[in-house]
């Protein structure tokens, strides 16, 4: 087989060989951890600092738009941030407006991994469940929490729970928004523009570039992106978990992808030049 044939075959390589390579390269560090150091990025450091600056007993709104498909992208960051907030004795209000399954995801994926045992329900944290309506629900919640929701997720009246009895939107010191569905704009429109609430976003990789303008303009006080953000935050709070053990896979898979990107482009360029040369002859 001549060199030209080899190059053409490589360019048209069956994708399944690439898939097997991806599996091997990504799984390798999960079986044999490499311990590659992770540098803390500025947006994650800013998120950490924003939470560190909170006074004890402050109230934080968790925009719990978490869902099963977002487990590894958002889950580790979510867990690490919750651990940090609980450590600082911050009171938490969980509510979702866009992700209907968020309460189920919270029960099965977050609660078993975060120690809520030392917190008293109704005083230290409250789960308000899913409120349908998206931006309208957000706006309604912001204008009057007790009128929008008479009861919490468990049917307890909000006027009887210590944390929510006289709670107003202006009482929140921070909003931590989980963002699998690109809803940060709605949160900023309904919570920050009218009430000036500070926001931290735990977001998908794909939306991070889109949210950078908000970060630069000061509309976001911090941002955690995908598993890498989770790993950085786990290191900041000194509790390595799922993200730290998985982030080596990011290194190996990304290096493979970078090689594929360059090699694929190089191969197509060379084959194009060779076929032009062949036609010229």
């Amino acid at each position: 087989m001549g060199a030209r044939e080899v190059l053409r075959t490589l360019e048209r390589l069956d994708s399944r060989y690439l898939f097997v390579l991806v599996f091997i390269v990504t799984a390798f560090p999960l079986v044999f951890p490499l311990g590659i150091p992770v540098k803390i990025s500025a947006p994650v450091q800013k998120s950490y600092d924003a939470i560190e600056a909170l006074a004890p007993n402050s109230v934080v709104l968790i925009g719990d738009e978490f869902s099963a498909p977002s487990w590894t992208e958002l889950g580790p960051s979510y867990i690490a941030v919750l651990k940090h907030l609980i450590r600082k004795n911050i009171r938490l209000v969980f509510v979702s407006f866009f992700s209907a399954e968020a309460p189920a995801a919270f029960d099965t994926m977050i609660k078993p991994r975060v120690d809520f045992a030392k917190l008293k329900y109704g005083v230290d944290f409250v789960e308000l469940g899913f409120v349908a309506g998206g931006e309208a629900a957000l706006a309604s919640f912001a204008s009057d929490i007790q009128r929008t929701l008479k009861v919490d997720r468990y049917g307890a009246s909000l006027s009887e729970l210590g944390l929510t009895k006289d709670l107003r939107i202006t009482h929140f010191s921070l909003v931590v928004e989980l963002d699998p569905g690109a809803h940060l704009s709605e949160y900023l429109r309904q919570l920050q523009a009218p009430y000036g609430l500070r926001h931290i976003s735990i977001t998908y990789g794909v939306t991070a570039p889109a949210y950078t303008p908000y970060l630069l303009a000061g509309q976001l006080s911090g941002m955690l992106v995908a598993i890498r953000g989770g790993a950085e935050y786990e290191l900041l709070i000194k509790e390595p978990g799922v993200a730290v053990s998985g982030v080596d896979g990011v290194s190996t898979s990304h290096v493979l992808f970078a090689i594929c990107l360059v090699a694929g482009s190089f191969l197509s360029l060379v084959n194009r030049l060779l076929s032009k040369e062949g036609k010229g002859k």
Partner: peptide
């Protein structure tokens, strides 16, 4: 989709 991204990076990204 990660698998298909790699495949696209190899085959579809043409300069």
């Amino acid at each position: 989709l990660a698998l298909y991204l790699v495949s696209a990076g190899w085959r579809a990204f043409k300069i």
